[in-house]
C-alpha cells in the first residue's frame, strides 16, 4: 500500500515537473494566463461588491457570508483548473486524434494518467489567492474550530463531486468523437456550481441539484453546522459516484476506436 502510494506520488511529482518545464518554456503565455486567472477572480468579486452596494442580503446570506461562499466556490474552481482542467481538454483531443493510445499503454490505471498528467501551473497563484480569501472571510464570520478542521474535507468533496460529474460527461467523447460540445457542457456545469442553490427555483433547482450541491452543501455546513447531515449525504454520494465511475470507465474505454492520425 505504502509502496503503491509512493509510486503514484512520484509519478505525479514528475507530471508536475514536466508541466512546469513546458509552461515556463513560454514566458509570455505563462504571465498572460496567470493575469487572466486573477482578472477572472476579480470580475466575480467586483460584481458582488456592486450588487451589495444596492442590497443587504442575497437569500439568507449577508455580504461577508456570500463572499465566503464565493471564495469557496472559486477555490474549488481554481483547484480544478490547476489539477484537472487541461487534462479534460487534452483527453478530447486524444480521442479524436488517437493519441490516447499512449496512455493506454502506460503501466498505470488510465483514469489516473488521463486525469492527472498535466498541471495548469499558472493556476498556482490563483489557488493561493482563493484559499487566502476563504481564510480571510472565514475569520470575518468567526468559524468554529470544527468547521476550520473540516475545510479540507469540504474542498475535497466539492472537487471530487465536480470531477466525477465531469468524468461522466467526458466519457461521452468515446461516442460523440467531436469533443467541443462535451467541453462546452463541462464549462456550463462549472458555471452553474459557482452560484448558491437557492437562486434557482423549482423545477430547475431539483434537476440541477447535483451540480448546485457541489459548492452549496459544504458552504451551508460551513455557515450553519445544523446542515451536517447534508454533508454526510454528500460524502456518500461522492463515494457512490466514484464507485460507478470506476466500474464504467473500463467499459467506456472499450468503445475507443483509436483513429490513425
Amino acid at each position: 500500500m505504502k509502496r503503491s502510494l509512493y509510486k503514484y506520488i512520484s509519478l505525479y511529482k514528475e507530471f508536475f515537473k514536466t508541466s512546469l518545464t513546458e509552461e515556463l518554456s513560454f514566458r509570455s503565455n505563462f504571465i498572460l494566463q496567470s493575469l487572466m486567472n486573477i482578472i477572472f477572480i476579480g470580475t466575480y468579486f467586483f460584481t458582488s461588491f456592486f450588487i451589495f452596494d444596492h442590497i443587504e442580503h442575497i437569500g439568507m446570506w449577508n455580504e461577508i457570508e456570500f463572499l465566503l461562499f464565493l471564495s469557496f466556490a472559486l477555490a474549488v474552481d481554481q483547484t480544478h483548473y490547476l489539477i484537472f482542467s487541461p487534462n479534460f481538454w487534452e483527453f478530447s483531443g486524444d480521442v479524436i486524434l488517437g493519441t490516447l493510445d499512449f496512455q493506454l499503454l502506460k503501466p498505470f490505471p488510465t483514469l489516473f494518467t488521463v486525469l492527472f498528467r498535466r498541471v495548469a501551473v499558472p493556476g498556482i497563484l490563483t489557488v493561493l489567492l482563493t484559499y487566502s480569501l476563504v481564510i480571510y472571510f472565514g475569520i470575518q464570520v468567526e468559524l468554529s474550530l470544527l468547521v476550520w478542521l473540516s475545510l479540507p474535507l469540504c474542498l475535497f468533496l466539492s472537487l471530487f463531486l465536480l470531477l466525477g460529474i465531469e468524468v461522466l460527461i467526458a466519457m461521452l467523447n468515446f461516442f460523440t468523437v467531436e469533443g467541443m460540445g462535451i467541453n462546452q457542457l463541462r464549462l456550463q456545469v462549472q458555471h452553474i456550481c459557482r452560484w448558491p442553490d437557492f437562486i434557482y427555483k423549482n423545477p430547475a433547482r431539483i434537476w440541477l441539484f447535483p451540480l448546485l450541491a457541489i459548492t452549496s452543501i459544504p458552504v451551508r455546513w460551513i455557515l450553519d453546522m445544523s446542515y451536517w447531515s447534508w454533508l454526510v449525504a454528500m460524502f456518500f454520494g461522492v463515494l457512490l459516484l466514484w464507485f460507478f465511475i470506476i466500474l464504467l470507465w473500463p467499459k467506456a474505454l472499450n468503445f475507443y476506436e483509436s483513429p490513425s492520425s
Binding site: L11, K17, F102, K106, S261
Partner: peptide
Amino acid sequence: NKSQVWWDIPAMDSFLLFQRYYE
C-alpha cells in the same frame, strides 16, 4: 505517425517521466 514524447520540452524531460511510469 504519432508521437508519445512531449512536443514542447526536451526529450530528456519526457524520458524522466517514462522512468517513473516504468519504475
